[in-house]
């Protein structure tokens, strides 16, 4: 029965990855990537890999979203300066 939790985690990770790609706005994608990181950490725990789960948690929960949002802020400030591009 331990496989059931692996199957559920796998399907959730696949759904989260598909959502992360189909969401086109970078800010909303950063949110979905944060959820994908947490789901990956749970999947790694079910696959008995706590070290990898711990590093995915450390990287995916606060570092990657912070980098993405800071880049969006820097790029958005420039875009607004030259007026609406699109």
């Amino acid at each position: 029965m331990a496989d059931a939790v692996i199957i559920v985690a796998l399907l959730l990770v696949a759904a989260a990855a598909t959502t992360a790609v189909l969401v086109r706005d970078p800010v909303r994608q950063a949110l979905v990537l944060a959820v994908l990181g947490v789901l990956l950490a749970v999947l790694f725990t079910t696959l008995q890999a706590p070290d990898v789960g711990l590093s995915q948690l450390a990287v995916g929960s606060a570092l990657t979203p912070l980098l993405l949002l800071l880049t969006v802020r820097k790029v958005r400030r420039r875009g607004r300066k030259e007026g609406p591009r699109r």
Partner: peptide
């Protein structure tokens, strides 16, 4: 020993939300 993962997530989860709250 798997409780360490929950400990780190309990610490960094709200920090991630603070990142979103602060920058958005």
């Amino acid at each position: 020993s798997y409780v360490d993962l929950a400990l780190v997530l309990a610490l960094l989860g709200p920090v991630g939300t603070l990142v979103f709250a602060r920058l958005l």
